[in-house]
Amino acid sequence: MSRPLVILLAVVLAAVALVAGSFLVASRMCSRQFSRPTDDLAWLQMEFHLGKGQMARVRELHDRYLPVCQSYCDQITAEKRSLQALLDEGRGATEEAVAKLNEIARIRAQCQASMLLHFEEVSRVMPPEQARRYLEEMRRLTLGFHEQIENSMSGDQADGHAHH
């Protein structure tokens, strides 16, 4: 290969290295700077461009909702532990175990309802377009997990319950 071609290749490689290097440095710096916000609500401000007053109202709602959320979380965890203990006894799906499952489902439904109510309250603080986006995402989050399981069991899947 002639010398000018070697030089051209070196120039191209240097250019690629320059772009890749600056990309990596900027990406790392940027994600390190913002990836661990100390505030749980930083995303709302970032994504939905909320003002100070709106953020203060959202924070108030959030702080009021957290103990409710924690309480449901504790109840579900306790019921799950108790169900696990029953199942570990090896007596199978006894009436007691089925009752525990129903109880978990009931608490979970209450928790989901309270989440939806909270998200609706928060959305009312936002401008209409942002509120619509926020609600859409939060509803998907609240209902999505179970929908995913249910879809996997529906006729859409080859080995679903539709075959039974």
Partner: peptide, 12 residues
């Protein structure tokens, strides 16, 4: 982080 704070893992 926001989702972790508002949606208990048990429900997700």
């Amino acid at each position: 982080q926001y989702i972790a704070s508002v949606a208990p893992y048990a429900v997700r």
